[in-house]
Write a protein that binds this DNA or RNA. Structure first.
Length: 484
RNA sequence: GGCGAAGUGGCCGAGUGGUCAGGCAGAGGUCUGCAAAACCUUGUACAGCGGUUCGAAUCCGCUCUUCGCCUCCA
């Protein structure tokens, strides 16, 4: 069974084979670090995390590069507005580099909470100024770029096929009703900046053959992608809002420089919305992840994200996240149950679920369907365990392995190796466990003597303390209540 | 104005030319000392109007509505 990926370039699902057998080169546009991450970042990076995990699961070696944009770019393209990182530095009364570093750490903290695996290489834009300058020189030498007053622009008309990703190929038509002021020093209104001359007050600036300045926004991804992954890469991912102009500009400048295809598969993830409106920092409707983590289990948020498809918009609401939290708990309970159950004699077949899971993931990473398979698996497994003969050791191990591979390794919604609760040391976990054994023994004794007043008191008081008791056929079990 | 996406049962959210998504919530039941959990049963959903078809929510056309991009943006 082969993997099909929806390629934004061509707008169809296409069978995926890497350029080099067995090795996948993948680049994803990283965040601009001038503020804490929000749910929109979470959707994007969780989605691509699952893409990487699946590619690795099916046997590819994935070289995953994700940049950090730590050069401030203007809040506005008409040379008005302010460098965003510089603006934040002014607000926080510090300098741009501290802002960039502080929010880079914040970003990784949040991604760690969500179980997003770190990229293999996380290059900084500021660390690759020479590479970017070199790329500009190549473009100028080939006649694709020109310098005016210390600024360098890419000449869109020199590159055939500009706009092929977004479908904006008619540059004349694009200009009508455009919101960008047309700058006279550009030869063509569609031309975009590769290098900008910095004014005196600009703090982040570098020497270049043209002026003391800073690189254009689109340039860093091309330079770093080519440096670490080569001139043609397998997958380039990013948010849908970056299709145009960012990705079309990347294609133009890269292909103009190398004469080779830049990216084989373009993947774009959709937006998180709030009441149907896009979530964004500048729109002031963004839901900060650190705040969200105070209310909800980070893995429940990851689960909530994966319950919709990466190409669909996801509408944020508290009720929806709560519903997801409850749903995830059900899967966790099933896993705990099968792990703790005794060996029986009944049969249980994991294979059909495995096949359906693989099929869903191979169909453009359909995590929504993959999760529905896990729920159906959960229901079938519980039914089998409810039966008087239980299931065999072999079936139990197969079921546990399936949940480990799908829920933990691929989707990352279950903790690897079991459901130890986060933030709890092994030591405290062990002593709690011992204490609980004593309490459950005492309660069992009380129930045996039909002293239900006592047994219910034990149960109620533990529930108040955040521990829930369930009486099963195989004795009482306990769980710490998660969520809110 | 240009480019693009979408409208699914109380809510979230997949998918498909002819059997079922799935989750949450609700109702009834089994089990249990009682709970909880688990399981069973239960919802005549696919924006509207036409058309193609033996058959369409799924294909085509039109209409309405919403959203994204064309400024920085996951």
């Amino acid at each position: 069974m082969s993997l099909f990926i929806y390629n934004s370039l061509g707008r169809t699902k296409q069978q995926f084979e890497p350029f080099l057998p067995g090795i996948v080169s993948m680049y994803v546009c990283g965040p601009t670090v001038y503020g804490h991450s929000h749910l929109g970042h979470a959707k994007s990076y969780v989605s691509f995390d699952v893409v990487v995990r699946w590619l690795r699961h099916i046997g590819y070696r994935v070289k995953y590069v994700q940049n950090i944009t730590d050069v401030g770019h203007l809040t506005d393209d008409a040379d008005e507005g302010e460098d965003k990182i510089m603006k934040q530095a002014r607000l926080e009364k510090t300098d741009p580099m501290e802002i960039a570093q502080f929010y880079t750490r914040s970003y990784y903290e949040d991604m760690d909470m969500l179980g997003v695996q770190r990229p293999n290489i996380a290059p900084l834009a500021t660390g690759h100024i020479p590479e970017q300058i070199e790329l500009i020189e190549r473009l100028i030498a080939k006649g694709h770029a020109y310098e005016v007053n210390g600024n360098v622009y890419f000449s869109v008309s020199s590159f055939q096929g500009y706009g092929k990703l977004s479908g904006r190929t008619d540059q004349e038509a694009q200009q009508t009703g455009t919101r960008v002021e047309i700058r006279s020093e550009k030869r063509d209104p569609s031309d975009f900046a590769l290098w900008k001359k910095a004014d005196e007050s600009h703090l982040m600036k570098w020497h270049s053959p043209w002026s003391k300045g800073y690189p254009g926004w689109h340039l860093e991804c091309s330079a770093m992608s080519m440096k670490y992954l080569g001139e043609t890469i397998d997958i380039h991912g990013g948010g849908m809002e970056n299709r145009f102009p960012h990705h079309d500009c990347e294609i133009a400048q890269s292909e103009a420089a190398t004469g080779k295809p830049y990216v084989r598969f373009w993947m774009h993830n959709n937006m998180v919305t709030v009441n149907g409106i896009k979530m964004g920092k500048s729109l002031k409707n963004s839901v900060n992840l650190k705040e969200l983590f105070r209310e909800y289990d980070p893995l429940a948020i990851r689960f909530f994200i994966l319950q919709s498809h990466y190409r669909s918009p996801l509408d944020f609401s508290e009720v929806a996240i709560k519903a997801s939290t409850t749903g995830l708990d059900k899967l966790r309970q099933t896993r705990k149950r099968v792990t703790e159950s005794n060996n029986g004699t009944g049969l249980f077949a994991v294979e059909p679920f495995k096949q359906r899971f693989i099929e869903a993931m191979n169909d453009d990473f359909n995590t929504t369907v993959a999760i529905s398979v896990l729920f159906e698996f959960s229901k079938a497994l519980n039914t089998a365990l409810d039966g008087s003969e239980g299931i065999t050791e072999e079936a139990r191990l197969a079921a546990m392995l399936f949940l480990e591979q799908t829920g933990a390794e691929v989707l990352g919604i279950l903790n690897p190796g079991g459901d130890g609760k986060e933030g709890e040391t092994i030591e405290t976990g062990k002593s709690l466990s011992t204490v609980m054994d004593i309490l459950l023994d005492l309660r069992a004794e009380a129930r045996k003597n039909r002293n239900f007043a006592l047994s219910d008191t034990i149960r109620d008081r533990l529930l108040d303390a955040g521990i829930e008791i369930k009486d099963t056929r195989e004795g009482a079990t306990w769980t710490k209540k998660s969520g809110c």
